[in-house]
Lab assay of single mutants.
Amino acid sequence: LTDEELVTMSVRELNQHLRGLSKEEIIQLKQRRRTLKNRGY
């Protein structure tokens, strides 16, 4: 997933992508998404 996709994707879509990932990967992705959102994309 690109940063842009992460930010513009709805939470529902995101959760579908996260299905099948490990807990660590999910946590990393969610942190990255929060960081991007805070940057004001």
Rank of each mutant, 00 (worst) to 15 (best):
R12A: 14
D3C: 05
T35R: 13
H17D: 00
R39G: 14
I27T: 09
R34K: 13
H17N: 05
E4F: 13
L29G: 01
L6F: 00
Q31D: 10
R19N: 08
I26H: 04
E5C: 13
E5K: 07
G40E: 14
R34N: 09
K23D: 08
D3I: 03
R19F: 06
G40P: 07
G20P: 03
R39F: 12
Q28L: 13
K30I: 15
Q31F: 06
Y41F: 13
Q28C: 08
D3W: 04
E25W: 04
R34M: 06
V7D: 04
S22M: 05
G20T: 09
R12L: 10
E25Q: 12
R12Q: 13
Q16A: 12
E5H: 06
T8E: 09
I26A: 15
E13F: 02
E13W: 02
S10Q: 03
L6G: 00
E5G: 02
L21H: 05
G20W: 06
T8M: 12
L21K: 14
L29V: 14
K37S: 03
R34Q: 11
M9Y: 00
R12E: 14
N38G: 08
K23E: 10
R33C: 14
E24W: 10
V7Y: 08
S22Q: 06
E4M: 11
V7L: 13
V11K: 14
Q31I: 13
K23Y: 10
N38P: 03
L1G: 00
Q28G: 08
G40M: 14
I27K: 13
D3M: 03
I27F: 12
I26G: 12
S22R: 07
N15F: 09
L18D: 01
R34L: 06
T2K: 04
E4D: 12
T35A: 15
R34Y: 05
Y41Q: 14
R39C: 15
E24P: 09
T8Y: 08
Q28K: 14
T35W: 15
S10K: 04
I27W: 11
R33W: 15
I26Y: 05
T2P: 03
L1D: 01
K23A: 09
G20F: 09
L36R: 03
T8L: 09
E13T: 05
H17T: 05
Q31V: 10
Q16G: 06
E4G: 06
H17K: 10
Q31P: 00
E24Q: 12
R19H: 07
R33H: 14
S22H: 04
V11Y: 09
Y41K: 14
R12G: 09
K30W: 15
H17C: 11
L14V: 03
K30R: 11
M9L: 06
L36A: 06
T35F: 14
L18H: 01
T8S: 14
L29A: 07
L14Q: 01
T8N: 15
I27V: 11
L18R: 00
S10D: 06
G40L: 14
